[in-house]
Design a protein around this nucleic acid. Structure first.
Lengths: 189, 189
DNA sequence: CAGGAAACTGACCGATCGGTGAGTGCGAGG
DNA sequence: CCTCGCACTCACCGATCGGTCAGTTTCCTG
């Protein structure tokens, strides 16, 4: 693996655990066994380093969200079934980046790439708004997806996850989301 | 209201929205129309200021958690019904502090009071572990409570909440949590 | 009015941060 | 052999941070 990739991997791990603001370029350099100036040679700035890490996941998420927004309007129950699976797969695919977006999106809104992350999350919230009529139903969507994302992002830190195989985790998440969303969409509340 | 209380209120709002690390004492002083040295006169350090803001909420949460841990073991379904209501009331009571704990607990673990917050959340996770047998059930608890906490903490930022009366919000949250947890506890999965 | 405590200020400190720029080591290619 | 460019380093910069301290203002009390 090249130093470039090493640096990105180290920065990703540090940003996710200690936080972007609390991780200095010097620390990344030390962990990689190189100099701070070398980090800034490979990534022109600290913000660019974060953007290189987060952008691919954001691209994926936005693609899914935009396709959902573009598709002809479907019934809530169909929306739930369609979106749940795509969303869970997105979270699992970008499992290492999700904690950064979830836990630090709020405080890093002045960093361009994180502002974009916030906008993307707002679009997901907009999807909920379109798919649900009542206030409680919006809340239900928010809790379901926010809960999955936050639990996935924080499980390791809180010692909650253990070591669950990915496919088992996937089916468990789908089952829980289905329980929470499908009754809400099919019944009148 | 005294300047002391003003400063705490301003700091609370800034810590919750912009983040602890991104909020300088100078900015708090400017917003309060005083000097940075005056802030440090009222609160001996920035960490102390944060501790004064977060500690009361942590005291409340820990009191509930400890009483739950001390009570004789109950059936999962009873645990769910007992804890759900107390937990929702805690979140609503300390609604303004919750975003700080939820969104910044991960990155501020070196600050003593936030380390305590993380420990408290870990104890809540321990409650889930005791109350649930299977992996999927633990996940269910985590998603339910994490989802409520995270949604409540992020709703305003994402423009999701609107202006929901507190009592309506409370009953909605209780209803959703009940749907998610009680079936899980009463059935065998 | 005297005085002492409480409230507050401005100047300053050391540390750390992200970032710059000149310069070095080096391997490939003409 | 020479040169060019990539990878990298070292010294340094300005800005900002939290925090200290000596001194001043404010105000209550005896």
């Amino acid at each position: 693996m090249s130093l470039h990739d090493d640096l990105r991997a180290i920065a990703l791990a540090e940003f996710a655990t200690a936080g972007y603001a609390a991780t200095s370029l010097q620390r990344i350099a030390d962990l990689a066994g190189t100099s701070k100036a070398s980090v800034l040679y490979h990534f022109e700035s600290k913000e660019r380093l974060l953007a290189d890490i987060v952008s691919p996941a954001l691209d994926d998420i936005e693609r899914v969200v935009h396709s959902m927004l573009a598709e002809p309007r479907v019934e809530p129950v169909a929306f739930g079934e369609q979106f749940v699976e795509r969303f869970v797969d997105l979270l699992l695919t970008h499992r290492d980046v999700v904690p950064i977006i979830i836990n630090q999106g709020a405080t890093l809104d002045d960093v361009p790439v994180m502002h974009r992350a916030t906008e993307t999350m707002r679009q997901i919230a907009e999807l909920f708004r379109l798919a649900s009529s009542s206030t409680i139903e919006k809340l239900r969507f928010g809790i379901a997806f926010g809960g999955v994302a936050y639990t996935l992002a924080s499980a390791e830190r809180l010692g909650l996850s253990g070591e669950i195989p990915t496919d088992e985790l996937r089916s468990a998440l789908l089952s829980i989301l289905h329980d929470l969303l499908v009754p809400a969409a099919s019944e009148t509340r």
